[in-house]
Design a protein around this nucleic acid. Sequence first.
RNA 1: GCACCCGUAGUGAAAUGGAUAUCACACCAGUCUUCGAAACUGUUAUUCUAGGUUCGAAUCCUAGCGGGUGCACCA
Length: 596
Amino acid sequence: MNKVITDAIFKVVGDENSASFLMGKNLLDRPGDLSHGDYSTNVAMILAPKLGVKPIELANQIMQKLQASIAEGVLTGIEKVEVAGPGFINFYLSQSTSLELIKEILSEDKGGDNYGKTNLHGGKKMIYEYTDPNPFKQFHIGHLMSNAIGESLARLGEWSGGDVKRYCYQGDVGRHVAFTFYGFDLLKKEEGIEWPSENLSLSEKVAFLGKIYAKGATHFKDHEEDESIVQEINKKIYNKSDNELNALYDLGKKWSMDHFEEIYKMLGTKFNEYFFESDSSVVGLEEVKKGLKSGIFEESEGAVIFKGENYGLNTRVFINKFGLPTYEAKEVGLALLKYNKDPYEVSFTITANEQDNVLAVSYKAIEQIYPEIAKKNVHLSHGMLKLTTGKMSSRTGDVITGESMLHDMTEMALSKMEEREIPEEERKEIAQQIAVSAIKYTILRQTIGKDIIFDPQKSLSFEGDSGPYLQYSCVRAKSVLNKAKNNGIEIDLDKIEIENLKDFKICQLGWAGGKLEKMLVRFPEVLIRSEVERAPHYVSQYLLDVASEFNSFYANTQIVVEGDFLTPYKVGLTKATLIVLTNGLNVLGIEVPSRM
RNA sequence: GCACCCGUAGUGAAAUGGAUAUCACACCAGUCUUCGAAACUGUUAUUCUAGGUUCGAAUCCUAGCGGGUGCACCA
């Protein structure tokens, strides 16, 4: 079609330069407003000033040539071409083309579960590192945000033909672990508390870890003279020199990890590999020491630093004056560990944007050491989940944990389902799926870079622009399909005559408008755009539009009518909608319950 | 102070430099004997300010005002 348009322009303009200017460009836009056609092009407006003519006149001339192409049968599948607005040329697909596309959604090979899959990446090896909670600390709603975004980016990669691996990187050593055991020592002295026995439940053990960490962190704030004590503990953890401490450390780490795993299961994430700071710190330390000799790093005030200011960045400490590697050095080690584990073509690290500057410095340092690996590392940052009271802080306890949020949302979903006659077990499972979808959708409906101000009372809705709304739309569609099945209605679009469809109105939009159909066939393009821009919110927005259109259709039309020759088509359209919604929700990491 | 990000209805958001700036919540008025009302139909309201680039600016450039984040041994 591009070529046909270029030819038409060439015929009108007769100018080699103008035509070649357009060659290889995608001339076609997908207008946001369906009343502007299925495709449109603005070439007339771009070329008119160069040629010194009015855009409308040029557009009209091009349109006439295009109409001639349609008459000659060169340009097929197009029903109408028109000039609109300041000089847009709009194309309308013919109804038979639309019908063919709907058939494709329903087909065995390209359609169904596969509808929307592309081979954009051709099996490229892609790494996604996200969530990254720290053992001994809480899994808070910020981790929920990183997980929702990372998981959907990973899935977009998969749907676009990438060979995707999911990594999780965890800070199992460092100051926060030192604070944990510092806090434990304090509470042991002050209150005589003891390390929990193995008989306690996992959540009780995790609560204990949270308690001693909070104690250590808050106490230190008022007792900074304890710095050397904290550093001493920190060093012991790195060196594994204290057997008693090692035993408690191993237990605590395992509890944290088990606890996180429960949450990942709820969220639908399965990581391929776990990386730890206790490993990356060793490699990082070694690399930075080597770099010190070669002049990449330098010593300053007893620490080893990287002069980021030479590159317009901050100068930062990589090895502190106690000889321990910082976050920055660990990133250097991690990049190497990841690459050696399984060489990749691209590796994404997904974190909150408060880490932008620090990671920029680390990546710049890696670039000096291993330029080839650095080139393949991409940092994607997202906004922060903030409370209405301000920034969350796990130190002051002004924090909402991931599981408390999941729990509260599940309770809300359960109360909504009170009147449904669903067995207890299934009811709980569905409520959890709804809770997860509400949370994920709230995060994924907007541009990933922006903050979300989170008001626990109001923020997560089950109505309107929400995950549960999309799930509900699917459940409705399933319910219709069930009824159709019980009535013995088969979906056979081959039997549908275009001429018959024309005379019948399917809701007020009608087949002639065919808005729902036109929206459904755009799904693969939406996924591609989302993947290219790494913007899952295009998927959310699109799904909301589709669901909303389907719900109008549903409310205005009885889909399954006995003896109605149009019913097989309407049922087919319902099924196509369900496929698009289900696949789209899958990309967002949201499951579709069979009922709710 | 320096660097980066951001400013769109009452609120929360969307908009490859394109057409009448879209969606949800809230408000108000309606719709359950139909395939599930977690729904549908209708109504009101929006681009921080001042310049500039462009056939065309919420979008790009400059300045200002307002907000966020980061700036040496935490991650």
